[in-house]
Amino acid sequence: MSEQAKDNQKMVIKLLVIVVGMFGFGFALVPLYDVFCDITGINGKTANSAAVYTAIEVDESRTISVEFITRTNTGMPWEFRAETKRIKVHPGELHTVNFYVRNPANKQIIAQAIPSVSPGQVALYLNKTECFCFNQQPLLAGEEATMPMQFYVDPQLPEDISFFTVQYTLFDVTGKGDSLAVKDNPYLREQPKSGT
């Protein structure tokens, strides 16, 4: 092999490394995007694990209105509503709001709630210490449940925001991924009459 051909080959290998690297980078954009969202609050994605509430000073001088919206996705027959539609809170205060669900279908359905906050940057300051959206929620036919969401608003919330909206969309995830057994659902209103 001539000098020239060797040089060419070396260069091709280097360039192929870039190509493979960029293909990997395309996929790396997926976790990077989540990091990016966490930093900037694009899209109002909230954290999907619980925050720990440490007693912080409650800022009584500010009152924030929080509005809750519930929706069910196509193919999801559940009844789903917020028991509190709107609540006024002071930053730093811990609050619990309840959501009612009922499965009217004649079979078990496992639900996953996906949160979204608007304006998006509020996601950075909305800390949930407990949320039904952290886990999948199974309900047998005809069952109903009250699902709590406990949260506080970080006092660092920018001054110009006095109002925000939290939306939960319920998706039917039955048969997808790691489904919980029914008895694991801690939010059930009453035990189903007929066991299974």
Binding site: T74, G75, M76, P77, D172
Partner: peptide, 17 residues
């Protein structure tokens, strides 16, 4: 009746309920 009321996830069939 069920598919008309609730639609079908993962398709264009919407919930008309």
């Amino acid at each position: 009746i069920d598919i008309v009321i609730n639609g079908k996830a993962g398709t264009a069939m919407q919930a008309f309920g």
